[in-house]
Design a protein around this nucleic acid. Structure first.
Lengths: 341, 341
DNA sequence: TTGTAAGCGTTATCAC
DNA sequence: GTGATAACGCTTACAA
C-alpha cells in the first residue's frame, strides 16, 4: 500500500503531525494561516486518513455493525435501507453480515463484529436464544462486544437492550378482527415459525381475537407455514385440496403470503369470493396483482431509521434508560378480507 | 474499551507477544507445548484480535467494499446476497454503501472505502462516468483506492477493470425476437435510463432486432421509463390512454415492469390477449400474479458470486489479464409474449 | 499556537 | 523455538 499518510502531509506543509491532526479533527488551536496551508496540501494529495490507524489510536471505531437473517428478503432489505441511510447521514461506516437464520453464523458474525470493535450494533437475531446453551453463548459474545446494541424486529427476552419492534400480538389481533368484522366465522392461519417469539405472538393475537369474539379455532385450520414461501405453499395447497376450509385466513409474513397466494392461484380460487385473507407486510409490486390485498403495514423503513436513532442516541449518551419501542402495525383494508356469500 | 489484547494473552501464558502472534497466524515455528498453552489461554479469554491493529500492522485490510445503487431493489439485493455469501465463505469482512444512484454519494462512498483501505471493491456505479469532469474525478478516486476493483452490472467503458455483467444487447435482441416470432409486427419498448450504457444497449438490441426483421420502430412506441416504477407507470398509462398501441412490449427492468403492469391492470387489459410483453429480470413472487410472465433471467445471485470470485482471484494474483465476463441472459418463455388475434 | 513523544494492538525482523 | 523491538498511521498529553 502506498497511501499518503499524515506524516507526508506534515512534511509537505512544513508542520508537525499533531498540527495536521488538529486540522483534520478540528480540535485544539491552530492559526488560520497554517490551517489554510495544511488544508491546501491535504486537498492536493486528496488525503484520506486511515480509519484503522485512527480507530486504533482513539480506541474506538466509526463502524456500525448490522446483522440480519436474510439480505434479500424485501422486509430486511427495507430495514437495511433505513439503517444505511442513517449510517450514511451521520458519517459512520456500515459493516454488514447475514446469518441466513443460522445461529452459528450469527455467532460468527458477532465475532467478526468484536474483531472490528464496532461502536454500535443493530441486530436482528436468527433465533430467540432463550434456551440455555444458546443463551449463555450469546450473552458472552454480546458482553464481549461491549458496545451499544439495538435489537431489531425479533426481541431477545432475556436481554436488556434497546429494542425496536412491532407489536405482533396486537397486529395479529387487529388483522383477525378485520376478518371477523367482515363476517367470517371460521378463520384459519398460515402461522409463522413457532420457534420464534414473533411467530408465537402472532399466533396468540390471532387465537385471542377468535376467542374473545366467541369463535373457536379448529386445529386443522392452522397451517404451519414457518415464514417460508415453499412450505406455506405446499401446506396451503394441501389444505385447499382437503376441502372444507375456513373462509378467511391470517397469513403471518410476506414470504408465506407468496406461498399462500401461489396455492390460491393454483386452485383457481378467487379472492375474496372463494377465500379471504389478511396478511403481515406489504408485498413488492402488490398493486399489480389483480387481487385485493388487505395487510398490516409495519412501516419497515421507518423502523430501520428508528433503530439507528436509538443506537446513535445510546452511543452518544450511554447512561439512559433502556428504550423499548413497540410499533403498532397499521391495518390497511383493501378488500381481500371481505366475506362474500 | 477494555478488550483483551495480545499482550494480555502473552502475559497470562507466560510467553512473548510474538509467539502468540505466531499461533494466531499459524506462521513460523512454535512448539506444540507452548502452542497448546497459548490456545488454552486464548480460549479462556475468548480472545479476538483487533482487526484495526492487524490491518494497520500488516498494511492491508480484510475488508471488501461493496457499493451499489439501491439496497432494497430486489435485483441489487440478490447481488448483495451473492457477494455476502462469498465474503463470508472466505473470511473477509463486508463494508456496504448505497449510492441511491447519485454520483456524489458514489464518490463519498469511495472516499470512505479509501479511508478503510479496503482490500477489494465490488462496484456498481451510479452512472457511466464517461463525461469528463465525472470521469477524471472517478479515475482519481479509483487510482487512489489502489486495490483490485470489479465492476458489476454497469460497465465503465473508459476503465480497464475486471467486469461481470450481462450481455444487455443480446438479451434485448433475443427478447424482442421472442415477440417477433410470436407474430407481433408492431412492438414498443419501455426503455430504461438512456443516460446509462445498459439502458442504451438494451434499446439498441431492441431496435436492431426490429430492423433486422424488417420491422420499423415508431417513435411514439418508445416509452421513456427510466428504470423507474412510477415513471414507467405514468408513461405507459398515458400511451394506453392514447390508444392505437403496439401489440407487444419489451420492458427494460424489474422496476419498470411493476409500473408497466400497474398500468395494464388499471386499464383492465389482459395479458397476452390485449397486450403482450417480455421483460428484463424476474419479479418477486411472479408465480402468484395470475398473468403469464415471459422474461430474461440473468441469474443475478450467480453474478454476485462470480464477481467475488473474480475479485478474490485478482487479490490473490494481481498480475493476470483483465477479465470481462459477459453473461448471456436466458429467455424464459411463459406465455406473456404471445400474440392473440 | 505548535511540535515532540508516547501509545493504541498488531506483525515482522532480528538476534538469541 | 522464542522474545525483544521497531514499525504501521494516527491521537493526545505535555512541553515549548
Amino acid at each position: 500500500m502506498c497511501a499518503v499518510t499524515i506524516g507526508d502531509i506534515a512534511r509537505e506543509a512544513g508542520v508537525g503531525k499533531a498540527t495536521v491532526s488538529r486540522v483534520i479533527n478540528e480540535s485544539g488551536y491552530v492559526s488560520e494561516k497554517t490551517r489554510a496551508k495544511i488544508v491546501k496540501v491535504m486537498d492536493r494529495f486528496n488525503y484520506q486518513p486511515s480509519a484503522a490507524a485512527r480507530n486504533l489510536s482513539r480506541q474506538e471505531s466509526d463502524i456500525i455493525g448490522l446483522i440480519l437473517p436474510e439480505v434479500n428478503n424485501q422486509f430486511f432489505s427495507d430495514i437495511l435501507k433505513g439503517v444505511s441511510q442513517m449510517v450514511d447521514k451521520w458519517g459512520y461506516t456500515l459493516m454488514l453480515s447475514s446469518s441466513e437464520n443460522d445461529p452459528e453464523r450469527d455467532f460468527k458474525a458477532l465475532r467478526a463484529m468484536i474483531s472490528q470493535r464496532v461502536c454500535g450494533l443493530a441486530y436482528i437475531p436468527a433465533i430467540d436464544y432463550n434456551d440455555d446453551p444458546w443463551y449463555s453463548r450469546l450473552d458472552q459474545l454480546l458482553k464481549q462486544l461491549g458496545c451499544p446494541v439495538v435489537i431489531l424486529d425479533r426481541p431477545l427476552e432475556r436481554f436488556e437492550f434497546d429494542t425496536v419492534m412491532t407489536d405482533n400480538y396486537s397486529g395479529a389481533y387487529a388483522a383477525t378482527e378485520a376478518l371477523i368484522q367482515a363476517g367470517h366465522r371460521r378463520i384459519g392461519i398460515v402461522a409463522g415459525d413457532m420457534q420464534l417469539f414473533i411467530g408465537r405472538e402472532r399466533f396468540e393475537g390471532f387465537r385471542d381475537a377468535l376467542r374473545q369474539n366467541g369463535l373457536r379455532l379448529n386445529e386443522e385450520d392452522v397451517i404451519d407455514g414457518r415464514f417460508d414461501e415453499q412450505i406455506a405453499y405446499e401446506k396451503t395447497l394441501q389444505m385447499f385440496r382437503r376441502g372444507r376450509c375456513p373462509t378467511g385466513f391470517l397469513v403471518c409474513n410476506n414470504l408465506s403470503t407468496f406461498g399462500f397466494l401461489k396455492a390460491v392461484e393454483e386452485m383457481k380460487l378467487r379472492i375474496p369470493e372463494d377465500v379471504a385473507f389478511v396478511s403481515f407486510d406489504k408485498l413488492v409490486g402488490q398493486d399489480i396483482y389483480n387481487i385485493p390485498y388487505t395487510h398490516l403495514d409495519r412501516h419497515v423503513l421507518t423502523q430501520g431509521l428508528q433503530a439507528m436513532q436509538v443506537l446513535l442516541r445510546r452511543i452518544h449518551t450511554p447512561d439512559r434508560p433502556v428504550e423499548k419501542i413497540v410499533n403498532l402495525p397499521e391495518v390497511v383494508l383493501r378488500g381481500s378480507e371481505k366475506l362474500v356469500k
